[in-house]
Design a protein around this nucleic acid. Structure first.
Lengths: 227, 227
DNA sequence: AGATGTGAATGAGTTCACAGCT
DNA sequence: AGCTGTGAACTCATTCACATCT
């Protein structure tokens, strides 16, 4: 059905954004929405929206627009967000704990099933009802829980070894917050979120003539206030 | 000299990465480096590296390579990293505090000069030697400190209003961690870091045939272990 | 009419390939 | 010989413009 293969990362990012917006509209009782309306919300072109949505299967009705709930459902399915993704967090410093609570309070599509560190002072403490374990238990937990995603929030100096541990433990994707570019394992999907680079980018552009653009992470520049 | 105008965000991100690597090489006493060597470190093409570096002014020596310290210096200058950028953090929840300590421990080119919240329980506490203030003092602090960058780490529901407060206070750039796409003010540079979208992207791609690629935030896909 | 879907045109970014320096 | 700098080719993404459906 969904010939859903091969969406580009940028497209996926936008789709995930649309989806959140649709949930919101749906809650408000909005029934249908046009590409033009969505475009305004996100500061994107209507053509862009249509291209994106066409890629996951045409559910627009010409002359009318898109059905909000249908579209939301389809998006959810196409993005694999109809099911829960289990993840483990490695590194229980400030950032790791912050991410943990952030995700715990999230909409629940990403469930934290493990929290790890090596610091004896941290092990045994709890993060959102979860006991912090020693990293040596990582493989066991990943295996028994079926966790697919690892979140890396350790200091730069030990990022690579912990990354390797995640790979060895069997996760299929890693989101890395350590300010290092990891040497990625080709068998899994790896994504770096480098806060320092983000700041440096801002620093650069405000040094400059200050072009007015807004940039977003996944490398597209739209914006919306959907609340 | 530097006709440094108009580098694209992706290029800036790569340059900032190169710079960090060069610092490291420099510490190790490495004197010169070739585009090929850099390419290997970051899993990029040598041509890419040369194009990037050519844009900030040709300091390569044909047949030889680049002088590490010269290049580092030039990069630092071109990226505006020769000076300290002052920033304020709005939102002292888990994420805000985590970012605060993360940046405080950073190399010091970004200095936190203000930490804000609205929660009476948090106000008066300290974050890395800095007293947490009420958001109403934001404008005053930004003015007196000359802060240019605002970091937003508040809940989604109040992100827009706090963003507006930052703009009104006079910062020139905002890095937003709230999981909302802000309605950006054209006068300032705004950048969203959406952790949820990052996770959803990973979720999607591991649902798929699992193409092997690694992606990085600023939308380029290189990687390096430079430690 | 009004909005979608989509080929064609444009634009941005990356890689190729080679001329030009040391 | 070796490596940089750079125009040309190419790939990927976005925008245009319009045919198509309700």
């Amino acid at each position: 059905m969904t010939l859903s293969n091969s969406l580009s990362p940028v497209t996926v990012n936008r789709l995930s954004l649309y989806l959140r917006c649709l949930h919101c509209l749906s809650e408000k009782g909005v029934v249908k929405v046009s590409s033009k309306q969505l475009a305004e919300m996100f500061h994107l072109s209507a053509a862009q929206i249509r291209k994106d949505l066409a890629q996951i299967g045409g559910l627009g009705i010409r002359g009318v627009g898109y059905d909000v709930t249908d579209l939301a459902q389809r998006l959810q399915l196409s993005l694999g967000l109809d099911r829960v993704h289990r993840l483990v967090i490695v590194g229980m410093g400030n950032l790791g704990r912050a991410l943990g609570t952030f995700l715990a309070f999230d909409d629940g599509r990403f469930k934290i099933v493990g929290a790890f560190d090596t610091d004896p002072d941290k092990i045994g403490n709890s993060l959102e009802n979860l006991e912090i374990l020693h990293i040596r238990d990582l493989a066991e937990v990943v295996r028994s829980s079926g966790a697919e995603i690892g979140v890396l929030a350790v200091p730069a100096a030990v990022a690579q070894e912990n990354y390797d541990a995640l790979v060895a433990a069997g996760v299929k994707a890693v989101l890395n917050f350590a300010p290092v570019r990891l040497d990625p394992d080709p068998r899994i999907r790896t994504k770096d979120v480098d806060i320092r680079t983000h700041l440096e980018e801002l620093g650069f552009f405000l040094l400059q003539g200050m072009s007015t653009a807004a940039t977003a992470d996944g490398a597209f520049e739209p914006c919306a206030r959907y609340r």
